[in-house]
Each structure stands twice: as C-alpha cells, then as structure tokens.
C-alpha cells in the first residue's frame, strides 16, 4: 500500500473512531488500536503510540471548554494526577518488556469492561459526607447546576487514589485514556457527582497520557507519519461528536451499537493475542 492510500484510510477510520469515542465518552483509542492492528497489520507499539497522541489532543481540547464552565474539580484532578502519572510511567516501562500478544489480550479485556461500564445507568448522587482526608486536601467543592451551585463531598480518598494508580498503569500499558476506569474510581469509590467526575477525568487524561507518551516517544514508538492522520482524524471526529451531543439528548442507542462493535473488536483482539498472531 502506498503512503497516500494508507494515510487516507487511517484518516477516515480515525474520524469515525473520534466520533464514536466522543459520543460514548470512551475515547477514540478503543477503535483506533484494533483498526490499526487487526485491519492494517500495524505493529501494536506504533498503534499505541499514535493512540496516546490522539488521546492528548482530544482531552486537552475538551478540557479547555469544561474548565471554563467551572465544573471540573481542579484540586481533585491535581491530587489524583500524582497517582495516574506515576501509574502511567510504570505502565509505559512495563509495555516495553511485555510481549505484544499479552498487551492485545489485556486490551481486549479492558475493552469489554469499558463497554459494560458505558451502558450503566447514571444516577445523580450527592454526598454531604466530608471525610477527614478530603477536608485536609480541600477536595470538597461545588459545581453549577440549573438550580444554582451545588455543594458536594468526597469520600474514600485513599481507595480512589489506588484505583487511579491502576487506571494510570492501564493507560500507559495499552495507550488509551482509560476514562472508564477513572470514572469508576470517582463515581463508585469517591461518590462524586457524575458531571464532575467525567469532566475531571477528562482533565486528567491529557497529563496521564503525556507521562507515558514521553517514554514511548524516546523509544521510537511514536511514528510521525502514522500518528499524523490518527491525531487529525480523531480530533475532527471528536469535534463533530461534541456538536451532535449538544443537539441530541438521547444517545442510548449509540451506546448500545458502540458496545456491540467494541465487544466484537475485543473478542478479535483476545483471539489474535491467544493465538500469538499479534
């Protein structure tokens, strides 16, 4: 295949990956990595490198918008970034020594887990419980809603911190934003309102990905010619996705379709990994 053909195919594929990733909130990496490895037979290390770069672009772009709205809890994000960056560093180093077929299997498993997570019902929860650590770290905050500013508390800081460490390792190891895992940590463990947890998770994804991207970059895993169409495609797709999200309120069916696609890809990745074909 010539460079121009490959670039166009990746550009179009990345556009749809970015679109679906933004509509479901899972991020573009979930489609990009299987697209590159399964369909185009790109080495998984290059695929992860390109995916990481696109993750930084989309999360930074949308974080810029969210931060202005004042929903993002910057102190909470900053504090948890200690865990995610340390994890991402460990994950990126681990990735260098992990055989590619194990990475493929792990990728498939995380993919399925995230698909299930994205189908979960989101209920608005507010805890007024203020734990000692959360108070010490000034994590309790408020965010704007239609009924004015709403105060919320943060519980189980330690548990959330360790879950973030794990999310960071996964992000560095398989090159995704692992937004689903971050949301689990903040929603289920730290009991933070859904809107705050998604925007704060998005805020952290860029730094987390950057921490492992610097390792991938120096290892030569970030190929400019391959990353170029991925970054541009995913970013344009994500922008389109955010425009659609504003217009339509019901995106339940998109999530269902996306979960089906993701499960098929996941099974393929696991199969190829087990057979040692990746």
């Amino acid at each position: 295949m010539s460079v121009i053909e490959l670039t166009l195919i990746i550009l179009i594929g990345s556009y749809f990956a970015g679109l679906l990733g933004s509509l479901t909130g899972l991020g573009g990496g979930f489609i990009i990595i299987p697209l590159l490895t399964l369909l185009l037979h790109v080495d998984i290390h290059y695929a992860i490198g390109a995916s990481l770069v696109s993750v930084i672009a989309t999360s930074s772009g949308s974080a810029a918008a969210y931060v202005k709205e004042g929903i993002t809890n910057m102190r909470l994000g900053m504090f948890l970034e200690i865990a995610t960056t340390a994890g991402a560093l460990a994950g990126a180093i681990l990735a260098i020594y992990t055989p590619t077929h194990y990475i493929a299997i792990l990728f498939g498993l995380i993919l399925i887990l995230s698909a299930i997570m994205s189908l979960r019902k989101k209920t608005r929860q507010i805890t007024q419980h203020k734990s000692y650590l959360a108070q010490k770290l000034k994590l309790n905050s408020s965010y704007p809603t239609t009924d004015g500013m709403l105060e919320y508390g943060v519980s189980n800081v330690t548990g959330g911190f360790f879950m973030m460490l794990f999310a960071g390792v996964i992000s560095g190891l398989i090159g995704i934003g692992s937004g689903a895992l971050k949301v689990v940590a903040m929603d289920n463990i730290m009991r933070i309102p859904f809107k705050v947890s998604t925007t704060t998770s998005n805020f952290m994804i860029g730094v987390t990905a950057a921490a492992s991207a610097v390792v991938y970059l120096q290892r030569g895993y970030i190929d400019p010619a391959l990353s170029m169409p991925v970054v541009i495609g995913v970013l344009l797709g994500a922008i389109t996705g955010s425009k659609i999200l504003v217009q339509s309120t019901s995106s339940k069916w998109i999530r269902v379709i996306f979960s089906v696609i993701i499960s098929v890809l996941a099974v393929q990745m696991i199969y190829k990994g087990v057979m040692g074909k990746i």
Binding site: S2, V3, H41, V42, L217, G220, P224
Partner: peptide, 27 residues
Amino acid sequence: GGAVYIYRHGHDIANYSTFKDESDFAQ
C-alpha cells in the same frame, strides 16, 4: 508537516507491520 511529507513521499510503499528500531525522530 503532513502536507510536506505526503507531497514528497506520497507514493512510497508504507510498512509498519514490524517495529524498526531506527529512532531518527526519537531524540
């Protein structure tokens, strides 16, 4: 950069199936 690269190398054959340890653009 992409425009410059495609203009010059658009018709080269692409191969990314194996990782090559030529880190021209790593440092």
